[in-house]
Write a protein that binds this DNA or RNA. Structure first.
Lengths: 220, 220
DNA sequence: TAAAGTTTGTACCGTCTAGTACAAAAAGTC
DNA sequence: GACTTTTTGTACTAGACGGTACAAACTTTA
C-alpha cells in the first residue's frame, strides 16, 4: 500500500507565531534570571525556533529584552482597560481600583519581576520606549477622574495628587509581590497564605480610602 | 647620597582591612550590577588586593555575595538600634519609626538594591543566613511594643498584627527607593525632588497613623 | 635561624556565551 | 518559472569569565 503520506504542511510560515513564541519563552527567562542571568542559548532551546531566528527578529539580547518589557506593559494596559469605573461612586471606584491593582500584580509576578529587573538597570531600556509611557498615562487619567469626582462631591480631601496616589497604590501592590521571597524568608507569618493575602488586600484598600477621605484638621 | 629609603613598611599585614575593603567594593558592584552582572575581575581591579585574595577569603563569587548581604543587614540593624522609642507616646513613637524607616531606606540605596537582587534570586542566599533573621526579629519586637502600648491607652485599634504593620511601613519606604528609576522615567513628576520626598514621607506617616487609629465602625 | 603557617601576585585554563558565517529551503512576485 | 525576499538550521568563533596552579614573600613560632 504505497501510501507515503505527505507530511501535513501545517502553516509553514508563521512569523507572528514564532515571534510570539520567542517572546513568551524569553519573557519567562528574563523574569526568572534577569538580563545578564538569562541565556540566549537556553531561550533558543525552549523556543520552537532556533537561535538564529532570535537574532533575525530581535537583533541582540538587549533588543529581545526590550521587546519583552514592552509586551509586558502592553499586556497590563489591556487588563486595566477592562475596568469600568465611571459608573461607580468615587470612593467605590477607588476601592475597586486599589483592589484590582493588588490582585493584578499578584496574578502577574513575571511582569513585576521584569519591572524589578528594569529598576536594577536604572530603567535604561524603559527610558527609550514611548509605548510604555503611554500605558501609564492612562492609569493617571483614571485616577484624576476619580479624584475630581470625589472632591466635588465632598468625600475626598483637597490637594490630592494623582501621581502620588498612583505611587501609594503601586507601593502596596508592588511590594507585596516583589519582596515576597525575602519577606517570607525572614518572618514565618501567614501574610502570604490566601487568607493573609485577602487581609492585606482589604487593608490596603482601607489605608488608601482613609487617606483620601481624611480632612486635615478634623481628626484629633 | 646613598639613601635608598627602605619602603615604609606601613602596616604590612592588614587582613581585616583587606576584607573590609573587598566587602565595600564588592557590595557596590553587586548593588550596581546584580549577582550575575557583577564581575569578579572588576571587583578585584577596584580593590587594593588582588583577585587571588578574594577567593582566599570568600571562596567563590557566591560566598562573596553572601558576605555582602550579611554585612548590609548588620549595618541596618546598627542604625535601627540607635532609635529610642520607649519614651514616646505610642502614636509619636510610631510616627517617628515610620519617618525613620522612610529616611533610612532613602539614604541606603545600595542596601535596597541588594535586597532587590536577593528577591530576584528568590531569597536563596538569605534563607541560609541566621544572622539576617535576627536583625529583623528586633524590628518586630519594637513594633509589638508600640502596638501594645497604643492599644492599652486606647489610641490604636484592635487586631493589629506587628508583622503586617512592618510590611506596610516597609512597602511605602522600600518601593520609594526600589522603583524610583522606573517611576521617574514614566512620570515626570516632582515626587523625587527634595520637596516631593518630604511630602511623600509625611503622607506615609499619615497613612500608617490613620490606619492604626481607625476604629472599625466609627467611620461613615 | 629554621620550620611552619599566612598572605599576596602572576599567569593561565577550561568553559560558557553572545553573536555570526554560511548555506539553503520556502514563499512571494512578475 | 525565474528571480527576489523571507525564513530557518548548523557549525563555529572570539572573547569574557570564574576559578586555579604555582610560586614567593612575609610573619610567627620554637
Amino acid at each position: 500500500m504505497e501510501l507515503e503520506e505527505k507530511p501535513i504542511k501545517a502553516v509553514k510560515r508563521d512569523p507572528k507565531g514564532v515571534r510570539r513564541n520567542i517572546l513568551r519563552v524569553s519573557s519567562k527567562e528574563f523574569a526568572e534570571y534577569g538580563l545578564s542571568g538569562a541565556r540566549v542559548n537556553e531561550i533558543a532551546a525552549l523556543t520552537k525556533a532556533s537561535k538564529r531566528m532570535i537574532y533575525y527578529y530581535y537583533g541582540d539580547k538587549e533588543g529581545l529584552y526590550k521587546a519583552c518589557l514592552e509586551a509586558a506593559y502592553s499586556h497590563v494596559r489591556a487588563g486595566e482597560e477592562k475596568l469600568d469605573l465611571g459608573g461607580l461612586e468615587p470612593d467605590k471606584a477607588l476601592a475597586k481600583l486599589v483592589g484590582f491593582t493588588f490582585d493584578h500584580h499578584r496574578k502577574n509576578p513575571d511582569f513585576i519581576r521584569l519591572v524589578m529587573i528594569e529598576n536594577i538597570h536604572k530603567a535604561a531600556f524603559l527610558k527609550g520606549s514611548e509605548i510604555i509611557r503611554s500605558v501609564n498615562a492612562a492609569a493617571i487619567k483614571n485616577l484624576t477622574d476619580i479624584i475630581i469626582r470625589g472632591q466635588s462631591s465632598g468625600v475626598f480631601r483637597d490637594k490630592l495628587d494623582p501621581v502620588e496616589l498612583h505611587w501609594q497604590i503601586s507601593a502596596l501592590s508592588f511590594f507585596n509581590v516583589s519582596n515576597k521571597p525575602t519577606f517570607s524568608a525572614l518572618f514565618d507569618s501567614e501574610l502570604y497564605s490566601d487568607e493573609g493575602q485577602r487581609t492585606l488586600r482589604d487593608h490596603a484598600v482601607e489605608m488608601i480610602l482613609l487617606y483620601v477621605s481624611h480632612k486635615q484638621g478634623t481628626q484629633k
